[in-house]
C-alpha cells in the first residue's frame, strides 16, 4: 500500500483532472485577472502618516486598547511608571529591546528581562509585560509582535497587562503593507511566531456579551514615541 502522502496527492491530482469554473465575480474588472491583494477595497488605512494616526487612534479606542502618545523616550518611561503606580504592579517582565530597557529601568517596582532567563511559572505571576513590536497597522488597530521582537511567544500573552512601546514611524497604513514589510525583512527566515494583536483578549462566548481578558491580557497599552 502506498503511503498516505502519495495516496492523498494522487487522489487530489485525479480529482483536479476536471477543471472547475472560476467563481462568479461581481465586477468585470476583477474577472480573470489575478487580484494583487485587493487591498484598495479593504478599509482605509490613511494615505499620509497623519491620516493613519487618526485612524489608528479611532480603531484602538473602539477596541478598548489605550493609546498613550509621548514626545520622547524619557516621557515614555514616566508614562509607564505612572501606570505601574496607578495599577499597583508588583512584578513586571520585559523584552530586552533598546526601546524597552530604559522604560523598564524607570519602573517603581521590580522587573526582569524575560528573554534572558525565561521561566514560565514566574511569568505567570507577573502583573504586566512590556515589549516592543514589529509594526502597527492603522487600518485595523493591530499591533504586530513576533517571537523575535517581543521576547518570545509567552511574554505578550501570559501576563494580565501588555504594554507595547513603539516609535511613530512603525505605524503602517494597512495589513498588506505590514505583510510586505515582514517578507522584505525576514524573507525565508520568518520568526517562529508572528502575531497580529487587535485589542485586549476578549470573548463573547457567554450570551454573546463582550468580556475582556478571556485568557490573554485584559489591558493593552500602546505607548507611541515621537
Amino acid at each position: 500500500m502506498a503511503d498516505a502522502r502519495s495516496d492523498i496527492l494522487a487522489r487530489i491530482r485525479e480529482a483536479l483532472q476536471v477543471k472547475a469554473p472560476k467563481p462568479h465575480f461581481k465586477s468585470e474588472e476583477t474577472q480573470g485577472q489575478p487580484v494583487k491583494v485587493g487591498k484598495q477595497w479593504l478599509p482605509d488605512g490613511g494615505e499620509t502618516t497623519e491620516a493613519s494616526l487618526v485612524i489608528l487612534a479611532e480603531q484602538l479606542a473602539k477596541l478598548k486598547a489605550v493609546l498613550i502618545r509621548v514626545p520622547d523616550e524619557a516621557a515614555a518611561g514616566v508614562a509607564v511608571a505612572d501606570l505601574a503606580r496607578a495599577k499597583a504592579w508588583k512584578q513586571v517582565a520585559y523584552h530586552g529591546a533598546s526601546l524597552v530597557r530604559p522604560v523598564a529601568a524607570a519602573l517603581p517596582c521590580p522587573s526582569w528581562e524575560a528573554d534572558a532567563s525565561f521561566e514560565k511559572q514566574k511569568l505567570e505571576g507577573c502583573d504586566a509585560a512590556i515589549t516592543s513590536c514589529e509594526a502597527i497597522v492603522a487600518q485595523l488597530g493591530s499591533i504586530l509582535v513576533s517571537s523575535a521582537s517581543s521576547g518570545g511567544r509567552a511574554l505578550s500573552i501570559l501576563p494580565h497587562v501588555h504594554v507595547v512601546v513603539a516609535r511613530v514611524d512603525q505605524v503602517l497604513p494597512d495589513l498588506a503593507t505590514a505583510i510586505a514589510q515582514m517578507e522584505a525583512k525576514h524573507g525565508a527566515q520568518m520568526p517562529s511566531m508572528l502575531s497580529f494583536i487587535t485589542g485586549p483578549s476578549r470573548t463573547g462566548d457567554i450570551e454573546r456579551i463582550l468580556v475582556l481578558g478571556a485568557h490573554g491580557p485584559k489591558e493593552l497599552y500602546l505607548v507611541l514615541v515621537g
Binding site: G141, A148, G152, G216
Partner: peptide, 24 residues
Amino acid sequence: GAGQPMTCYNTLYAGPRKPGECDG
C-alpha cells in the same frame, strides 16, 4: 463571521522554537 475589524489574535507559526528564541 463576528462583525469585528480583525479577530483579536491572528498568529503565524513557522516551526518550533528557533535558536536564539527564549521559549516555544
